[in-house]
């Protein structure tokens, strides 16, 4: 951040990066829908209605109803709460757990840094998706375990991101200057190092949120993690899969499309931020390393 105020940054976004603006709009749209649904939509996500089972999309039920007559629009919007809250919690946990390690490793350098890096590299050989699934499967299905597993994997990512930033800054001269001017270690970290890592950490958040969202959905779809009957989108697709082949395509399709739309919003936001922050050709390399599944 170049000292620009936050409001100016947001208002100027559509002009400077349309992609980021659209992405932000999609994400905020889901947040607003999840918050406003009880106020404006007559059906609740849990309200079964025996008189309207498995109705296709109509004016009354734009996304149809499920096999117990629950309104699918209400359920899909209800699912946004999982899709927003779980990745957000995982990000908070990941940053809180990961960045201190990254900071310490980056500052310490030498053997400790090399050991931590080797450790992260070794764990990284397990595909992150499978490790997250295995952790939840091992701990047992519960929302808390899902957040914990996703958070631990995010922590590994943020630790490495933080470590790389601190190392790069360490070598960049202005820290050396700050040391030469007689700054104490505490002040060095709090005033010179940490504020300069904020932008880098923040710019990774949309892509990491997209990863957490996709992983959460696979957990739901594979029947690992969230409890049965919850309106988590992946689990809803799982429940609707068989009906898809007998004609009730809307049960699986709409939760799936909601996943796609929110994920696309996050990817747009990430790509827009990458365009804004990574202007120089050399630093575009970050884009290359960033795409993960």
């Amino acid at each position: 951040m170049t000292g620009r105020r936050i409001p100016a940054l947001v208002l100027g976004l559509p002009r400077r990066s349309p992609a980021a603006a659209i992405g932000l709009l999609i994400v905020l749209g889901f947040v607003v829908a999840a918050l406003a649904r009880p106020l404006v939509w007559p059906f609740g996500p849990g309200a079964a209605d025996a008189s309207s089972e498995l109705i296709g999309p109509s004016l009354r039920h734009p996304l149809g109803t499920d096999e117990t007559g629950r309104d699918m629009l209400a359920r899909v919007i209800d699912g946004a709460r999982y899709a927003i809250a779980v990745p957000l919690a995982a990000l908070v946990l990941g940053i809180a757990l990961g960045t201190p390690f990254g900071l310490l490793a980056g500052l310490a350098g030498g053997l400790a840094d090399r050991l931590l890096r080797r450790l992260a590299q070794a764990i990284g050989f397990i595909p992150p998706l499978l490790l997250a699934l295995a952790l939840v499967a091992a701990m047992g299905p519960s929302l808390r375990h899902v957040v914990l597993a996703l958070g631990v994997l995010e922590a590994m990512f943020f630790a490495r991101a933080m470590r790389d930033q601190v190392r790069a800054m360490h070598d960049s001269g202005f820290i050396e200057a700050a040391v030469a001017m007689g700054n104490r270690r505490r002040r060095l970290i709090l005033v010179h190092l940490l504020p300069n890592t904020l932008a880098g950490i923040a710019s990774e958040m949309p892509r990491r949120a997209a990863w957490a969202l996709a992983t959460l959905a696979v957990m739901g779809f594979a029947g690992i993690g969230t409890a049965a009957g919850a309106s988590e989108w992946g689990a809803m697709v799982r429940e609707g899969t068989n009906a898809m082949f007998t004609g009730q395509w809307w049960l699986a399709l709409f939760p799936g499309l909601a996943l796609l739309l929110l994920g696309f919003g996050l990817q747009l936001l990430a790509a827009g931020i990458a365009d804004l922050t990574l202007r120089s050709p050399a630093s575009r390399a970050g884009d290359l390393a960033g795409a993960t599944r």
């Binding site: 997209a210 996709a214 959905a217 696979v218 779809f221 992946g234 697709v237 799936g256 499309l257 996943l259 796609l260 994920g263 696309f264 996050l266 990817q267 747009l268 790509a271 795409a291």
Partner: peptide, 10 residues
């Protein structure tokens, strides 16, 4: 970007 956001099972 759509492909990157696409859930594999979907």
């Amino acid at each position: 970007l759509v492909g990157a956001a696409m859930p594999s099972f979907l």
